[in-house]
Design a protein around this nucleic acid. Structure first.
Lengths: 143, 143
DNA sequence: ATCCCTGCAAAGACTTTGCAACGAT
DNA sequence: ATCGTTGCAAAGTCTTTGCAGGGAT
């Protein structure tokens, strides 16, 4: 089912703001903070405000359309909650992102974590950090 | 090695504030937010201020004495940490936390990701979500 | 036309910074 | 005596709330 249909069925309206927020999240493969969603979404809908971004992300999360995860440094990031899932690698220097799919290794780890802790684990979010090839070389040169 | 010795060796001082913070964390088996640490610790050291709690928790975290984990609702909670690299999992329902050890599986995944993307990866953030044993059972019973 | 949604401003929650006094070594 | 540490106040970051006008249905 399309997310616009879902909104309609739950009595919510489909607006330009909401389309812009959803498009922003769909256009990148990295989770975005609210302020980053705003920046992205304003390219399509310049009148958009940060408050609306927060409210829209809350709504989308309630409907299961996006997932809210924590980021080191104190703010939350939001990502589309597609059933198929991906992991992101973000360059700490230039922000370039690469996507990395498949997590057989993580499933094994989760299995072990469940055994060790007794928790029933139903989701995971892994983000790798480091330097992309270009930045790693540039930094090597300049010391 | 005792944490007070560790502080000394790294050039940090052992103070009443730091003892009060450490005792507060050790006295409970649930992770505490900074404000909760303050409340606890003031029973032993009434002059303690919130700023010092934050600074002390930061220091302890750098030294690997406490672990900072995220809690739904926007603030961080701190818990005493056993040495070594761990990941924390927090129960989505009651907030109880557990640690699990080792991430050989992640290292294998990182190796593969480096080969595939050309990134030089030097860190990872893994967040598991789920329910602790008690909450999983409670929810099962109530439907 | 209805009433949900939006943007602005302001408030709120959590955390960090500046600085002078204090205290562990 | 030295210099790391503390507490207060103030500032900063992230997020939520109040309200009147605007837009989807």
């Amino acid at each position: 089912m399309d997310w616009e249909d879902l909104l309609g069925r739950r009595g919510h309206r489909v607006t330009a703001s909401r389309r812009a927020v959803m498009t922003a999240l769909e256009s990148v493969d990295v989770p975005l903070a609210a302020a980053e969603v705003l920046e992205q979404a304003r390219t399509r809908h310049p009148r958009l405000g940060l408050v609306t971004v927060y409210r829209t992300l809350d709504l989308f999360q309630e409907l299961g359309l996006v997932r809210r995860v924590h980021r080191e440094g104190g703010c939350h990031v939001y990502t589309t909650a597609s059933p198929g899932h991906h992991h992101a690698i973000v360059c700490r220097h230039c922000g370039r992102a690469a996507e990395f799919t498949g997590c057989q290794e993580i499933h094994a780890l989760i299995q072990r974590a469940e055994d060790e802790t007794g928790f029933q684990i139903d989701g995971h979010m892994l983000q790798l950090s480091g330097l992309c090839h270009q930045c790693a070389r540039a930094i090597e040169r300049t010391g």
